[in-house]
Design a protein around this nucleic acid. Structure first.
Lengths: 159, 159
DNA sequence: CTCTATGCAAATCTTTTGCACGAAC
DNA sequence: GTTCGTGCAAAAGATTTGCATAGAG
């Protein structure tokens, strides 16, 4: 998030296209509208909950939050809302070891993909490191620091 | 266990305890026997299937393989066998995005955890990078190279 | 008015669990 | 003989789907 601010800060303020993920209510609603989607109460509440969240959330937890303001919303609607937001790349879905999947805004970039060939840098959300971090901790008691190291490989252009 | 894995490289070849993962039929069966476990037909077949496998496998796929030789083995037994092998750290379990979890031998180490503080190096199985690799490819068309970069952080001793 | 999203209920898929019996040691 | 693992059946947990209707544009 801090890194993100740094990198984004070098642009002028004109950019309205959310890259890589939308992070404001209006930007996300516009994304939903873009493909003929409609803005419903449940969608507004789901997006609102996501924006007011620092971490991840399960579909069931989201359902509880949404139902606090719209009791009639049912969990299958929550799943459909989250599925659509994932399709739009507004959120990422992470399958937990045993329990349910968790969802989170796809904005905060913490890791970096560095191309061995052209040196280009691509930001990667910290959630992408969750599984790696879990394995390192569980098997070795090692705490990784995704913001500190570069993940090397070949970018799309240099394959 | 975690500490042992870190130190393995500095020992001479006398060590017979399989660290970090067992990779031969007898070594794994010994591990099962160690805690009072028993060697049954289904366990033998599950271990055999794992050893003759290059990649990952789901519980259901494993069940099919085992049933080819022992038709009466039921899938709950497969789950229990896999759970036990995971507990013994013979295999790793990876929860797939949507479908079922997959299991694979925890032997091949490809990545490295490097402690920022003491510089110690711990090997990490390439499977630990699966989720990271999938995200990088799916979202950015980027192919990571787990063997080439160091994952930094704090080791158990330097927390 | 048209077409999408929702509520509700049921289905599906994966994994877990209780229990009595059979097998390993 | 004791203890552990298995088969069977049922439960549990998470997610998806069909369908009629309400609601957004």
């Amino acid at each position: 998030m801090a890194q993100m601010a740094e990198l984004v800060g070098s642009y002028a303020g004109e950019v309205t296209v959310p890259v890589p993920g939308a992070d404001s209510m209006e930007a996300i609603l516009d994304l939903l509208r873009a493909g003929g989607g409609r803005i419903t109460t449940s969608r507004r509440l789901v997006v609102s909950a996501l924006l007011g969240l620092r971490g991840h959330i399960t579909a069931e937890e989201m359902c509880v939050l949404v139902q606090a303001r719209a009791p009639d919303v049912v969990i299958s609607t929550i799943y459909r809302n989250l599925e659509e937001l994932e399709r739009l790349e507004v959120i990422d879905r992470t399958q937990m070891a045993h329990g349910p999947a968790t969802y989170h805004l796809a904005t905060a970039a913490h890791g970096h993909l560095v191309c061995e060939n052209c040196g280009s840098i691509t930001e990667l959300p910290s959630e992408a490191f969750r599984s790696l971090a879990d394995t390192a901790r569980r098997r070795h008691g090692f705490t990784i620091n995704p913001g500190r190291f570069a993940v090397t490989g070949r970018c799309a252009a240099c394959q």
